[in-house]
């Protein structure tokens, strides 16, 4: 019985505590750079699309709100023919960012994108692509992958030996 009264007293004392609520539209709060907000697609340091359309973001997505189609350009680079995120379904969980092997898909601290029409929350690749590399300035997937593309032949990636001469039997 006493403990109940003590509890009530403690709660009553909260009348004089500072309130934790931030009055959001009037006051803005600090969002750390790794805050999980609106999704973007970044570019590598050479200004090319980072996304190689590997489908890992779409399979990681718990609400299945990412759809894309892979294709390849004449230089041998893979890229998404279309890349669509239905933000009216997105729950900003960040799994896509974790799954992305090329740092292409990144979540930004922007979360203020309401629309009166759900259809306007469907973002296509043009809406998602930004012009910079986002949080990972130096990374270029094709510099570490074994795939040859225009301007990077076999054996020219990081940590690669020059291509083997199959005709040589020397050790």
């Amino acid at each position: 019985m006493l403990s109940i009264l003590r509890t009530m007293w403690t709660i009553l004392l909260h009348t004089f505590h500072r309130r934790e609520t931030v009055q959001y539209p009037e006051e803005t709060i600090y969002l750390p750079p790794r805050f999980r907000g609106r999704i973007i697609l970044s570019r590598d340091p050479d200004g090319e699309e980072r996304c190689v359309a590997c489908y890992l973001c779409s399979v990681a997505c718990p609400v299945d709100c990412i759809a894309l189609q892979a294709t390849e350009d004449e230089r041998g680079r893979r890229y998404p023919e279309f890349f669509r995120i239905n933000f009216s379904r997105c729950i900003l969980c960040g799994f896509c960012e974790e799954a992305c092997p090329t740092y292409a898909i990144q979540l930004t601290p922007d979360f203020e994108y309401c629309e009166y029409r759900r259809h306007n929350l469907v973002y296509e690749k043009e809406d998602l692509l930004i012009s910079g590399p986002g949080k990972y300035p130096g990374y270029n997937f094709y510099r570490v992958a074994g795939l040859a593309i225009d301007g990077k032949d076999k054996g020219e990636a990081e940590n690669e030996e020059p291509p083997v001469d199959v005709h040589s039997l020397l050790p």
């Binding site: 009553l12 909260h14 505590h17 500072r18 934790e20 609520t21 009055q23």
Partner: peptide, 8 residues
């Protein structure tokens, strides 16, 4: 309730 839970 807001008041006692430190909110508005």
């Amino acid at each position: 309730l807001g008041l006692w839970q430190d909110r508005y």
